[in-house]
Write a protein that binds this DNA or RNA. Structure first.
Lengths: 157, 157
DNA sequence: TTGTGTGCAAACGGTTTGCATCTCC
DNA sequence: GGAGATGCAAACCGTTTGCACACAA
C-alpha cells in the first residue's frame, strides 16, 4: 500500500478523498467521511484517540463502532492522510498528516498530561539527514519532549 | 518520587544501586539486581521490552514473573536509571538512561522493524530550548524517525 | 519484626479479528 | 453481482492489580 501525498484536503474534500481511496481499491463510506471530517473541521490539526473520535461522533448523533474506527484510521494512515502518534499514554493518537515543513512536535507534562505543540525545522532536517545517511526512505518522524510544566512544578512545593 | 542522577552505575554497581533504592524507601532484591545487570552487561545501551528481559533471564536459568519485571522497571524509571521508549510497536521498551549529551535516538524501518540508533546534539538542544520556552523542567525526550530501509525498498520492486 | 517485594492468577484497557450482513462500485 | 466495509461479540496481548506468602532492613 503506497501513500500518495495530498496538498490540501479541505478544499474539494469528498471527491478527492473518494478518488484517493478508489485508487487503492478502497471505498468511500459515510463512516470514513465523518471520521476524516472530525480531523478537518472540529479538531483541525489536533490529535485524537479512537475513543475521542467515537465520543465526539456520538455527540453528533453518529454511532460508529470501534472496529470501523480502527480500520478507517489504519487505511488513512496508509494513504498518508493521518499520522499515528505515540505519546506514551498507553494508547495511540492520530492527527492530520500535514506536509513535512509544517510538521509539529509535542512537549508533554508527565504530571498532568498537558500537551503543548511546537514546530522546529531543525527536527525535520535531522530526520532527513539521518534517513539519507542510512539509506532509508523517510516517511515520518516524531519528536516528543517530556518534562514538568510550570503549574505542576509549583504544586510540588 | 524524585530521581537522583547517577554518573556511572557500572563501577561500584550493587552498593550504589542499593543506597539509591534505600534512599527512596525501596529495597535491593536479587530480581532488581539481575534485571539491571541485563541492561548494563549483556545489552549495554540497548533497549529491551519486558518480554525480552524475561526471555533472556530465563536463558540464564532465572525465572522472574512479569509482575516483578514491570514493577522493577517502573521503580528504575522513577529513579532515573532507565528511560521508557515508545517505538510504536504496541509495547514499551526500556534502556539505560545515559546522560543527556550521549542520548541517542531511533530510526525505525516500518517494514521489517529494524531499529538503527543515532545521535544528534541538535535534538537535545531543541528539547531544551522548547522546554525552557514553555517553562517546563526538562526530563527526557524521544526522537523517532520512521522510514523504509534500503533492503525493504529493494524487496518492494 | 515489619513493611516492602514476589509470584500467581485474574482483571484491565486498548486494539484486532471472525463472521454474518450490508453497501459501494 | 461481487469485492470491500460494517457491527457485534469474542479474542488478543501487553500491562496492572489483589492477595497470600517471602524476605530485606
Amino acid at each position: 500500500m503506497v501513500s500518495k501525498k495530498l496538498e490540501s484536503l479541505s478544499d474539494e474534500h469528498p471527491e478527492i478523498l473518494k478518488s484517493l481511496l478508489n485508487q487503492e481499491g478502497f471505498r468511500l463510506t459515510s463512516q470514513r467521511q465523518k471520521i476524516l471530517d472530525l480531523f478537518e473541521t472540529t479538531f483541525q490539526g489536533h490529535h485524537l484517540s479512537a475513543e475521542e473520535i467515537q465520543r465526539h461522533l456520538s455527540k453528533q448523533g453518529e454511532s460508529i463502532s470501534f472496529s470501523t474506527i480502527y480500520r478507517a484510521l489504519h487505511v488513512m494512515v496508509n494513504l498518508g492522510l493521518l499520522r499515528e502518534l505515540e505519546l506514551s499514554e498507553g494508547r495511540k493518537f492520530y492527527e492530520l498528516s500535514t506536509p513535512f515543513v509544517e510538521q509539529h512536535h509535542h512537549l508533554v507534562c508527565v504530571q498532568c498530561g498537558t500537551v503543548h505543540e511546537f514546530e522546529d525545522d531543525i527536527i525535520t532536517q535531522s530526520s532527513a539527514r539521518e534517513a539519507e545517511l542510512q539509506g532509508f526512505s523517510l516517511l515520518n518522524c516524531q519528536f516528543t519532549v517530556y518534562g514538568i510544566c510550570s503549574e505542576c512544578k509549583a504544586d510540588l512545593e
